[in-house]
């Protein structure tokens, strides 16, 4: 099997990995780096459990060839928050709003809310519903997820930081 070595930036650090052509980003992040926050569930880019950021944009890791990560900047849920263990405001808002049950889809939602708030710091309910409409939560914590998104937006605005 052809193995290729690729270099990219993972959560702010320069890294290398050897990947096989058929591997997707989730395969690589799980096996090569032990990162488990992004997970493959539906396998079709529909549920968002595998959401990671590539060059600042949310993508479905399960539909992204690992090989294509060469030279990119990849950010995962594990890269959020401070080195001292403080949580990102979006993560904290998810806790405070009770925006999860089983937690399997939660990192994907958090990563989506991160790019949503980067694009639109004060999103309307309609914007939130459309932006997150491609993420599925079978426990259906949807009302709480919308509340968490708005709570995070308010807190970020109040603190004056991204």
């Amino acid at each position: 099997m052809t193995t290729r070595h690729i270099s990219f930036t993972l959560n702010g650090r320069a890294v290398t990995a050897s990947v096989q052509p058929h591997e997707n980003l989730i395969d690589m992040l799980t096996t090569a780096f032990g990162l488990r926050g992004a997970r493959e569930s539906c396998g079709q880019g529909l549920c968002g459990c595998c959401t990671v950021h590539v060059d600042g944009q949310a993508v479905s890791g399960c539909l992204f060839l690992a090989d294509m990560a060469e030279g990119t900047r990849i950010d995962t849920i594990e890269g959020l928050g401070g080195a001292d263990g403080t949580l990102d405001p979006v993560q904290q808002a998810f806790i405070d709003a009770g925006a999860f049950q089983c937690g399997f889809c939660t990192p994907g939602f958090v990563m989506m809310v991160k790019t949503l708030l980067a694009d639109d710091p004060d999103p309307s309910d309609d914007t939130i519903r459309h932006y997150l409409s491609g993420n599925l939560c079978r426990c259906s914590a949807y009302p709480e997820i919308v509340a968490a998104t708005k709570l995070a937006a308010r807190r970020i605005a109040a603190e004056g930081r991204p």
């Binding site: 488990r36 995962t76 959020l80 998810f94 806790i95 999860f100 937690g103 399997f104 958090v110």
Partner: peptide, 17 residues
């Protein structure tokens, strides 16, 4: 809040997956 809240929002919850 749920006892395991931090693990769930940081992606560290343990699943058999």
């Amino acid at each position: 809040p749920r006892l395991e809240s931090r693990d769930k929002v940081t992606g560290r919850t343990e699943y058999v997956h």
